[in-house]
Design a protein around this nucleic acid. Structure first.
Lengths: 124, 124
DNA sequence: CTGTATCCTTAGCGATACTG
DNA sequence: CAGTATCGCTAAGGATACAG
């Protein structure tokens, strides 16, 4: 498949698929949650402690969305007090290399972007 | 650099850089603009015509942001009527392979995600 | 042709309080 | 412990009108 054919997926009506993905992973907290769960299975409170700044509400909402999309599993243990554990699915794992690739690009190039931005602000 | 070190860039305070990138490229229209400009230099109206649904306001705003960040160049030709052309910088070009990689992942896996979502909605 | 300004509605999200 | 419910603020974004 040609480069431009593959690019087509990014835009127009064909871009629905790509948008669907971006809408999911670009949420403010989603990548933090996925990266944190990459360490292994964790329960609600552990996640909240490991992700500084996230509210209970946002953690709950995002976990539900990720579960709905099949990116994490939610396991309830029949205990008192309740214990609920979250874990990445293979689907989510397969996304991690791409996240890392993007992170690498960011590490290399974002400083240049921020320099451009600062210079731009100076000029006005 | 280890996998978990590279993942660290995604979360917590170290994640500023990654967020900065995501905040840019995950905007509703940014990837469409970049993909469209990948065909070559284009002027304002051409861009608007090739990106269905984008409003004049959003195109203008996004182009300004992308220029500010050094991802596109803006060239004004001294003519009447005015002609302004936009073009990707090398910085933006270096991002394209990653966008394509993500698009490929989306093409392969988003159908599964949407199937999961539908099944989930059925259950409730 | 290439934008900017203004208005307005909606979506995201944090804070807080409450529940099984 | 693991959430849900409610409220209120803010910012994103579309529509429209206007301007250089």
């Amino acid at each position: 498949m040609s480069r431009s054919e593959r690019l087509c997926l990014i835009r127009g009506d064909q871009g629905r698929t790509m948008r669907s993905l971006l809408d999911r992973i670009a949420d403010k907290w989603v990548l933090s949650i996925i990266a944190t769960l990459h360490d292994g299975r964790l329960r609600f409170t552990d996640l909240q402690r490991r992700i500084p700044g996230i509210s209970q509400r946002m953690l709950s909402l995002n976990l539900k969305h990720l579960e709905r999309d099949g990116l994490i599993t939610r396991t309830v243990h029949a205990e008192v007090p309740p214990r609920v554990e979250y874990e990445l699915t293979d689907l989510a794992e397969s996304l991690i290399p791409h996240a890392i690739a993007l992170a690498d690009w960011a590490r290399e190039h974002v400083p240049a972007i921020e320099a451009n931005r600062d210079a731009y602000e100076q000029r006005r």
